[in-house]
Design a binder for these strands. Sequence first.
DNA 1: GCCTAGGTCCCGTAC
DNA 2: GTACGGGGCCTAGGC
Lengths: 265, 265
Amino acid sequence: MVEGSVSMNHPQVKVDPTFQEVESIVSDACSRGCFTVLVADCRVDYHGRSSSKMGWGERVVLLKPDGSVLIHRRTGFEAANWQPPGCCITFSQREGELVIRADRRKPRETLEVICREVALVSSVLLKDDASLDMLISEQDLYSVLRANPDLIEPGFRISSEQKGLGGGKADLTGLDRSGRYTVVEVKRVAADTDAVKQLYRYISQMRETSPDLRGILLAPNIRPAAKRLAKSLSVDYRTVDVAQCAAVFSKNSSKGLDRLDRHFT
Amino acid sequence: MVEGSVSMNHPQVKVDPTFQEVESIVSDACSRGCFTVLVADCRVDYHGRSSSKMGWGERVVLLKPDGSVLIHRRTGFEAANWQPPGCCITFSQREGELVIRADRRKPRETLEVICREVALVSSVLLKDDASLDMLISEQDLYSVLRANPDLIEPGFRISSEQKGLGGGKADLTGLDRSGRYTVVEVKRVAADTDAVKQLYRYISQMRETSPDLRGILLAPNIRPAAKRLAKSLSVDYRTVDVAQCAAVFSKNSSKGLDRLDRHFT
DNA sequence: GCCTAGGTCCCGTAC
DNA sequence: GTACGGGGCCTAGGC
């Protein structure tokens, strides 16, 4: 595709629209499943699980065809106000102001964007069928480890994955080189104290039936507080190179996972 | 202010811009602290704490002057890809594609938006000094409870708020009707097992100096698993009517909080 | 800097 | 439907 070719749907754009023009563009956009961007001087009221009020100011308002609404301010990652998908968006004018109202049913929540001026309205039908592929999720890590238990510990043999236990599930269980029954908690990110406690809870429960039980916390790294706790609870900690696993995973994901020894040894 | 008056900063808008025009508009926008909206046919690569790839599709890209980047798809509340504030945004062209790169230092993360076509670019200097006032936060709940400790339990006397402990802080401490020292954990939403564990951690720490110690979990409702855990740890659970507190709070916020007995009894 | 706790968290999944 | 755990969660506040 060459720059300048017009293959995308042309966005509908109006600078300094009247409220009538905004309403007409946006309701047309909604009915055609378009994505709408507004730049407006507005104030915002929210009532629901909490309540908020935001005074007059200029913001960017996104209206999505699935009923989600996002009000972004000049800075900050998070939307200042919002409504998740599924809510009902209506327009009205009162006292020279354009009111965009987004209602949610469960839980009952209302969002009102009161505009006294709209600087820009644009709507466009977005063509987008691509998938967002997250590489190396925790599940993916299990896959790699299942195919390569040596990455847990040399000689390790996995006996179950995601074994259900009372109040949660152990990530992996198996036998270490010496044949000792072992519970493995896998974390894709730095292990925190919660991870240690979680693993310890599994161990405690399972010790009722198997008193001689090891616990291994497997993570790319561990928080200091978690390390101390693990030590005091006699839970072992081992590192796993997630980047390496990710590389292996993507290399194998197309043709199914099998033993990866040849990649590392 | 009257509809049609032009008091907002005029947004700069270009439909079907060339990549040169995009770069020039956006770099100008960045230097002037403008908010930029792009509608583009793009693919996105992310590498950092995790990794992701998203194939070609049309999306709305927000570039904020604080260095945050948001890539929104046609549907869904959440941005498909993003970069939080503080990252460094650079542009380049390669092989007929416009590459927007956003780099973060800590943690090291990179985001690349590769555009093969831009349908719209718009930048605007947003004037916005308003504050976002959240009503009835957990802090506000404390205020109401401080003025009305009977809402915790009849006869309750608060002795401290946000008492710092080694790692974490107890929401409220005080004496119950019988003079027993008590730690109260306040939740604005349904109490989950984490809330119980949190409270129990405080209790355990404080029992080293005050062995006879009660714990109360105060929340509008409690999850079943949390209720079971609380019971097994001998942590009491009591409900608080957040809507009532909110009503009281807003009624009193203008003239300062005092005893609210007269509102309810 | 790390850690802890909160959020209108949102979101998927199991039950 | 509700409950529960995860997130590239993000963000604010302490130490």
